[in-house]
Design a protein around this nucleic acid. Structure first.
Lengths: 337, 337
DNA sequence: CTGAAAGCGCTTACAG
DNA sequence: CTGAAAGCGCTTACAG
């Protein structure tokens, strides 16, 4: 059952051509006569030959591997992104090498080394704060980087996000229109652009309506912290009548907390999240939330990355994709809506 | 900012030794004198040298890459497994190359080719039914395979699962002890060992208590199908007073369905799932379920795979790990419990 | 268009 | 223990 390795030499022998000829037939962009192509393809077919990507990578420096750096996959948004990213990349002949990074400096240091060792053609970072020092090092090594669902102010790196500022603003306008008067915010991690932008848009949106946040806490994208923040808010002398939560993942924890405190979500207090992960639509939560258009974000990420791989001189792009507010029962509707 | 590639030649030159000496210092198992090792390490450190894994892979045939084949990541159990698998493998110097496979014959065919092209050292399949034809081909090519959370009857392949038959039996005993008399089952996909084993244990467990399933449907691990099955059951003239659902992912859909039909879960009807994903513990569902011990399953998978990589003559192992029934509020407790 | 040759960065017999 | 040399399976100038 040897299935011994077939090399271009074997194919060359059978086809009666040189090894270089075989290589040319399988190298996109190289040229060969119709006759040669036919002979080589036939021989390759017969032997079941496929070029060794490792050997190819060593010469061209192109591995057709994309490094995906992720931290925690417990927020449903990321596994879904991973799945779609992998599908989209596979369709283009690339594969994803996964790097799980604890957010520690040490962990990230190792990841960067590994990334460069494996000669990945490009890097996608999702849900990770890579220090700009390190991202710069990847860039210096000539490896294109796209940050997915996170931006970095100033830095010359490509990123794909939803329109987070605008999203926050939409939520503020919606809650104001719904007649809420004590509107709080349990924000996404303020160390991330995503958390900051949503908060900024939200605060600006309130201001445009002549209001201000009734309470404001950094939920750190953490369920426990968010739940505690919610508890503190509703136990206060003047509890909020609406809470905008920085992402769905935390919003679910907030809803659990409110219910266990005997409050009716959508009636006593309105809750709005951000992401629109599938779970948001499930009966148990039925969460009003700002949708991040996953498919479009994935497509933009792949397009941007491949464009940069094919043309390293290309300037980094910061892409923002607008997403709609999805109305469900967790937040009171404006009259006449 | 060139960060030009440092090769073993460069290190050799600086250290004043041959290139082979450098290679030996970095090749586990090869020997060199203390003096040489010291000189080489110092030079390597100074230059920031790291051996090129691609070149190494081409010679040794060992890529230190593990192919992970997954299908759908919407069931929370799998992303968590992926994360842990990646962490555990990274700690051993391996990385995960992700292959997303639609379950189509065609898709799997391509995946197998890609897997072999990239010379992965081993393969982990999760949530995928790879046809035995194809798994055999990987085995014939000498690539160790471990099936995670799925077995294959007869086939000479390693697998790691929880004790699914025993788990199903536990559920039956528990529901019987709780005084339920019309106990139904919305099973996991009967095309998978996991789905079949849980069902078998469950039916056997009922039989041991002198009972039989009140109703039995294949839920296909699909939310829509499971919800519809639940609806059909409760709309029948003799609705069940308990439903064992083949995994948590479907159980959540079943609970949503029952509630929207006005039933009280845990009171009017008991629901039990399988997996104990984090969401099962969240307030909105609070699902009684059989825990699959993820960490232990991951460790066993990694250990088995690496053992097989290091000793290809090693016989395949089928490992089963027992998991407890986790009691929450979705199922009525036996008296005195 | 095509073949012979060099070389990508390593590991590993082979002599010494 | 160590160096010179061959070779892993390719791509890519270089001549023809």
């Amino acid at each position: 059952m040897g299935e011994t390795k077939i090399t271009s030499q074997d194919v060359a022998r059978l086809a009666g051509v040189s090894q270089s000829a075989v290589s040319r037939v399988f190298t996109p962009g190289a040229s060969a006569s119709k006759a040669t192509i036919a002979k080589v393809r036939a021989a390759a077919e017969q032997l079941g030959y496929r070029p060794n990507p490792l050997a190819r990578a060593m010469i061209t420096g192109k591995s057709r591997i994309i490094g995906l750096v992720v931290a925690y996959l417990d927020n449903q948004f990321y596994p879904l992104a991973l799945e779609r990213l992998s599908n989209a990349l596979q369709a283009k002949g690339y594969h994803i090498l996964v790097f799980t990074a604890s957010n520690s400096q040490d962990g990230i240091e190792r990841v960067v080394h590994d990334l460069m060792d494996y000669q990945v053609d490009g890097i996608i970072t999702a849900s990770v704060a890579m220090s700009s020092n390190l991202t710069e090092r990847c860039a210096a090594a000539g490896i294109p980087v796209v940050m997915f669902n996170r931006g970095q102010p100033g830095a010359g790196l490509s990123s794909v996000t939803s329109a987070n500022v605008e999203g926050g603003r939409k939520v503020a306008a919606f809650l104001l229109a719904g007649g809420h008067s004590r509107i709080a915010h349990i924000a996404g991690w303020q160390g991330s652009s995503t958390g900051r932008d949503r908060q900024r848009g939200f605060v600006e949106g309130l201001a445009e309506g002549g209001a201000a946040p009734h309470a404001l806490v950094d939920g750190m994208f953490d369920r426990i912290i968010a739940a505690q923040a919610a508890k503190d808010m509703i136990d206060s002398p003047t509890p909020p009548d609406a809470i905008f939560v920085g992402n769905d993942h935390m919003a679910f924890a907030v809803i659990d907390q409110l219910r266990s405190s005997g409050l009716r979500v959508g009636t006593d207090v309105s809750i709005i999240g951000y992401d629109d992960v599938p779970l948001a639509a499930w009966g148990a939560y039925d969460l009003t939330t700002v949708r991040q258009p996953l498919n479009r974000m994935v497509d933009a990420t792949v397009d941007t990355l491949l464009a940069q791989i094919n043309d390293p001189t290309r300037a980094p792009q910061k892409i923002e994709i607008d997403g709609p507010l999805i109305l469900r029962s967790s937040a009171r509707l404006p009259k006449g809506h």
